[in-house]
Design a protein around this nucleic acid. Structure first.
Lengths: 132, 132
DNA sequence: TTCAATAATAATAATCGTTATCATTATAAT
DNA sequence: ATTATAATGATAACGATTATTATTATTGAA
């Protein structure tokens, strides 16, 4: 299985992701890496994001309607997605891993992991909106 | 806001969905509706699925890597996705809505809803696989 | 320090899932 | 029946992502 070779583009992508807390999309990452490597290809962004995900250095966040987001924080945690501004943020919350056990109780297979996303209005949007 | 008009294609889609427990994709629905209405268009399938979702008659399940699934069961419940055969099934489990409160504790916005998907090996795949 | 092996790249085509457009047809109220 | 308009089928377009391929960069060894 092909030994990994260094690439400055990949390093740059990882560095960029680590500098951001807003879980950017591949496209946003592309725009930013292009500042440093103007010839970088969008394919290179996607290839490296998938590679970094596969070796566990970053994680991918799949959200309803919209491009995947990427996160350099690989510690298990949950995300909040604002239905108005579509921002994605980390939630600092108590562990809820026991829901895996709750789900396993009446299930005849093996539950290995779970993903929970929370939706609503972020702080800023809640401030400027009367609910609906 | 445009009054809804009956359409036999839409009724057929709803009926088909109600007859299935496996949360089919738009494409699978298309294949099956075509048996009854050979001229039906894939656009009609998507248009009606979105319409039915908007009026709350069906719900859409977004999963990692793959097309959306559809479910005629609109009662809140959670789903299990098999990482091997990619089947999607309903989970009968105790209510875990309190995780919304757990998430809200240290969050400065409004959490309105959450989506939890469980992943692993379904009964059949677990039987035929030695884990990994 | 070249050299060869091969991983990674840039450029771009192709794919997948889905939505938009638009002329025609079906529904439903008069 | 007539009319208004929602829904359709056909198809083009779209956004997100993956595949292809010839070229370049990295790395380990001679």
């Amino acid at each position: 299985m092909a030994t990994l070779k260094y690439s400055r583009q990949r390093e740059s992508i990882k560095d960029f992701l680590m500098s951001r807390q807003d879980h950017p999309t591949a496209d946003t990452i592309y725009d930013n890496i292009r500042i440093i490597y103007p010839n970088v290809s969008l394919g290179t962004i996607y290839r490296n994001l998938t590679l970094l995900e596969n070796i566990g250095e970053i994680c991918r966040i799949t959200v309803e309607n919209g491009a995947d987001r990427f996160d350099s924080n690989v510690k298990p945690h949950h995300h909040f997605i604002c239905r108005q501004c579509h921002s994605v943020s980390d939630l600092e919350m108590d562990n809820i891993d026991y829901i895996k056990d709750v789900a396993s109780e009446n299930f005849d297979g093996v539950i290995e992991r779970y993903v929970t996303n929370f939706y609503g209005l972020c702080k800023d949007c809640a401030k400027n909106t009367k609910s609906a």
